[in-house]
Design a protein around this nucleic acid. Structure first.
Lengths: 195, 195
DNA sequence: TTGATTTTGGCACATTTGTGTCATGCATTT
DNA sequence: AAATGCATGACACAAATGTGCCAAAATCAA
């Protein structure tokens, strides 16, 4: 785990969630999962039972469009939750594939433990609300980039906002995350390099 | 208010939030605001103090990009919350303008009442979490349309998913919501009409 | 109603982005 | 070392979208 958080409990503590506020059996339900690069964490058309929390590593979610092309929807990094939350809570199959881009270690939180935690611990409920709101704000910003920026601007914004992530991702994956073809990103990079 | 909900209390009841579960003074803090078409509900660079809940009418939020063009970020319809939630909770100025596209009536919920409600009513906290998650799911879907669909497909998706809204919005606003220029949308519509 | 304003449709041309293809370089495996 | 599979850069051409402009139609205000 990162230097800042030695355990998941430490991470939760940073949100003012005290371990003593949680039922002991919440943590008893957690498990560790280790995956290797290119392993699939969750496949399309399956119903997830757990929410993941990445301790270290890197993952992406993608969808295959009608032309058979992979489109990267999101990247997931250390100290973030990963999974199709909507599918988890609605118990419906996900349409995304979650793939490891690096060897990844994650904590598995069963949906039952999550639900129980929400119902028995208002503090955890608040944690869930604030996380969802934070994520929502990020998604709103991403939508804004599609509405107000060119592909070149989106590329520059990405490397500015994600300086550490940028070097860990292939151009193929980054281009599909930005909503353009790989060749277009190559062209943009070439143009930028000429200045 | 719509036929289904005669009061805001009725609306909350549909989420299993019982009025008796809420402190009486939560409702005492609410107020009604009536705006006319083209009125500005919230201006850029201002800090909002209230969250709005639209009883009837229609609003949009937009941003002015670096070229001076208005870009519609979102539409807000009856029985939905409206406002820059992130600015509200962080007490920072919003970058959006909220404009009425029709005469609009809304309920104003002061941030203090919301905060107090969250802290004192776990049921309201849960309501907030579920709303944020639902909105998050919708935004994820919108991002997916930018990554996997052409402008023409996004247009067709919009009118299919929002049959009632589509006729209330000008092509100018719709095109900027879809992330294209008005002339391009005109061209797309012309092409579609020829079949 | 009239007049002003806004919305819409249309067009020519510029720019951006997509498509298909190929060659090179790099890493991994055998 | 040799062979294999990816990732990347490059290019020509096609398609989509943006830009600037104008006129007709619709809407709104006096």
């Amino acid at each position: 785990m990162s230097p800042e958080f030695r355990t998941y409990q430490d991470y939760l503590s940073s949100f003012d969630i005290k371990v003593s506020d949680l039922l002991g059996n919440f943590f008893n339900h957690l498990s560790i999962l280790k995956l290797k690069k290119n392993n699939i964490y969750l496949s399309e058309n399956t119903i997830p039972n757990e929410l993941g929390f990445i301790v270290n590593g890197l993952m992406r979610s993608y969808i295959i469009d009608e032309n058979g092309n992979e489109r990267t929807i999101n990247f997931f990094t250390e100290l973030n939750y990963v999974g199709d939350y909507q599918s988890l809570i609605s118990k419906t199959p996900t349409m995304y594939v979650f793939q490891c881009l690096e060897n990844t270690t994650l904590i598995q939180i069963p949906y039952t433990a999550l639900e129980e935690g929400y119902n028995q611990n208002p503090v955890l409920e608040k944690h869930g609300r604030i996380l969802a709101e934070k994520k929502l704000s990020m998604q709103n910003n991403r939508i804004k980039t599609f509405l107000t920026q060119t592909a070149e601007q989106r590329y520059l914004s990405f490397i500015r906002k994600n300086p550490g992530l940028f070097n860990r991702i292939s151009l193929t994956h980054l281009s599909s995350y930005l909503g353009i073809e790989r060749q277009s990103l190559t062209r943009i990079r070439k143009k930028l390099a000429s200045f």
